[in-house]
Amino acid sequence: MLEARLEQASILKKVVDAIKDLVQDCNFDCNDSGIALQAMDNSHVALVSMMLKSDTFSPFRCDRNIALGINLNSFQKVLRCAQNEDILTLKADDSPDVVSLVFESSEQDRISEYDIKLMDIDQEHLGIPDTEYAATITMPSGEFQRICRDLSALSESVAIEAEKNAVKFVCNGDIGNGAISLRNHSSVEKPEQNVNIELSEPVALTFSLKYLVNFCKASGLSGSVKLCLSNEVPLLVEYELASNSYLRFYLAPKIGD
């Protein structure tokens, strides 16, 4: 059986809020290492990969591999019934028909119990190769969100061009063009504003802004975001969570003919 207790319901609320417009029905794969999810959007252009390691929970117990097939719209409806600061416990049997959620208020003596009916989901699972990326950019997640939002008003696509010490986001649209450049920036006083660009070779790739704007819904999960790029491979957008857990998005590039 599965029993996983989260100190704060907000983590799961934010994860589901961030991915539910991209993927609808997903298997949450539970085993002794934690709870994982991999799902592609309908067009097979973007992929969500979530890992909540067992250390994220306290306690965490899962004796067997259990796949919880959940409709994210339903999941969100139930998670909205939890206060951000509530303690959240997920429970399921070994061959479950439902997943149970218990929300406990740390301040009040209130316990809320919900069940969500599970579904059988036959999901395509992609093998993602370990990649040494040519460019890794770490930047404030809010900054990345703003860039994507601003440029999406002008164009459907953005070119991300990484070169030594600088990364440039460029778009060309019907009404005009836009370009935002960021340089390596490190401040002891405001480390949350740091920008770090690691580069082994220059990279230039074009991506759909519609998907990037969607990924940025995860900005509330982490103050910083990591963009990993190599020429001719999908972009990795990673939000790191506590205890080595993560929410990752992959996006296939737009490629010239």
Partner: peptide, 14 residues
Amino acid sequence: PPKQATLGKFFGLQ
């Protein structure tokens, strides 16, 4: 204009 690729081109089915 460049065309949108899909992930199957890069990642193998498991």
